[in-house]
């Protein structure tokens, strides 16, 4: 069980950061879901709303950064508190980037919705679903300090990478058969790449969680 600090204010500050990160993570998950929904349901309104929602993510990034700096300056944290704070500073960056990727997906969605649908979307929603799961699980692992769940996220990344490759291959066949499809195929390809990046960000978070819990850096060791 986690002991409390002598200073209740110190605990409160760390908890505030933890909670804000979770809020940010929750918002990012919603963005992934909505960006995908905007494509599948051809809903450009939802896409617009997803793009403007990115402001909230950016705002939280700044807030969490400030809070972390404040605690670093006033408490000179050590040990797991130091690991937690440096991790929080990195996690916000990853979450903020995920928000950017979602906004980029939503922009492509608006463009795609102005043309006839190239093909039924099957793998893309699957990929979005698993990417969302990875983001959620990486944050769950962070909150619970669950290094096993974090390791699962790292390993799941391969599945998303494989889906991305599969989608790219499929799109290539479309483009070779009919040059008319190239512009749409490139956009879908871009979306697939965005999802793959989001999964990478979730993997980053998961790797950092393992460092926070075990004090062991596993970055660039899993292939």
């Amino acid at each position: 069980m986690e002991r409390e600090h002598f200073s209740k204010l110190y605990d409160a500050a760390l908890n505030e950061i933890r909670e804000k990160l979770l809020v940010m993570g929750g918002k990012v998950e919603v963005m992934i879901t909505n960006a995908m929904k905007a494509i599948v349901e051809r809903d450009s309104d939802l896409a617009e709303r997803t793009i403007s929602f990115d402001h909230e993510i950016n705002h939280l990034e700044v807030e969490i950064d400030e809070k972390c700096l404040q605690v670093l300056a006033t408490r000179q944290p050590a040990g797991r508190d130091l690991r937690f704070l440096t991790l929080a500073l990195k996690i916000v960056t990853d979450l903020e980037r995920i928000g950017d990727q979602c906004a980029a997906i939503a922009r492509r969605a608006i463009e795609l919705n102005q043309e006839p649908q190239l093909k039924p979307y099957i793998d893309l929603p699957r990929m979005a679903h698993w990417t969302g799961v990875m983001v959620k699980e990486s944050l769950d692992a962070f909150v619970r300090g669950d290094d096993e769940l974090a390791l699962k996220v790292c390993l799941d990344d391969q599945f998303v990478d494989d889906l991305n490759e599969q989608i790219q291959r499929e799109l290539l066949t479309f483009m070779m058969e009919d040059p008319e499809t190239i512009s749409r195929a490139i956009k879908i390809n871009y979306i697939s790449k965005c999802l793959e990046r989001i999964a990478d960000h979730a993997t980053n978070v998961a790797e950092m969680v393992i460092f926070m819990v075990k004090g062991k850096d596993i970055r660039h060791t899993i292939d």
């Binding site: 408490r75 040990g79 797991r80 130091l82 690991r83």
Partner: peptide
Amino acid sequence: IFTTPDRKQTEDYITGRF
């Protein structure tokens, strides 16, 4: 010792928990 100590007692002490 100040980032990733091996013993929990050490960690609790350096982080101000006891």
